[in-house]
Amino acid sequence: MGFFSKLFAALKKTKDGIAEKLRGLFARDKIGEDFYDDLLDILISSDISVSTADEIVENLRDRMISEKVKDKDYVLSELKEELKACLDMADDFELETPAVIMVIGVNGVGKTTSIGKLARYLTANKKSVTIAAADTFRAAASDQLEIWADRAKVRIVKSSEGSDPSAVVFDAISSVKAKGTDVLIIDTAGRLHTKSNLMEELKKMSRVVEREHPNANFYKFIALDATTGQNALSQVEVFDEAVGIDGIILTKLDGTAKGGFVISLCNELQVPVAFVGTGEKLEDIELFDKDEFIEGIFGE
């Protein structure tokens, strides 16, 4: 039993879970008029975008009608295939060192916590890691990060509250270059993607990395809260336009929300999911696995 299956076991108990709804749908006597309409509703109600849900259902319906399929089990397995097709490139992610990982996202999605866990994950995989506390805006953010750095036993470069985040990035890069550190992880302040001045600040930090550490592989990860709804798409679009997104960290998957929006994100924007966060403990981070994710949604 994979970690996703464990997570989704909690979901089975909730009546509103997508697995339960799908089971109800496929328990019907026959695939009638309303079947595909209801399927569309169920997909949307797992936070998949309307356009992707529509695409999935249309594809499925067309194929099932042209193949004159009556067998429900076959329809179900084909539905899974459609969903998997959306996630085709979802786990195409590989980290090459030396690397700089900049973690960005809106407020409260779990960036700082994810960075702590990511640092531990990388050191467990024999990489040397340094963290840069470039969230100089939120009260006590660097203190919070420092506690995580202690737990993960990695170095941290920090500055005082209100200082220029790009300067912190600059200092951290000088430090990792001097020490030959494999991975630098940059924490950034949470910002709503609608605040263009804060997006400019991100672009500046990004330019500093490219200029000061040209030999490093530069990854920009967006942290997304699994509880988020349709707005996830807008978040990724706008951050992607500003600095380019290389991967998603899907956080808080230990709740009852499943982060169904990643299906539409992968389908519509071709952004892979790099990591998933599954709790508040240091080791609660995993690589994304699309098959387990789909099986999890179906509650199997």
């Binding site: 936070d47 509880t227 996830a232």
Partner: peptide, 12 residues
């Protein structure tokens, strides 16, 4: 409640 919450808002 975060106004960006999706369908799960009901459960929460």
């Amino acid at each position: 409640v975060d106004s960006m919450t999706g369908q799960d808002a009901v459960n929460v």
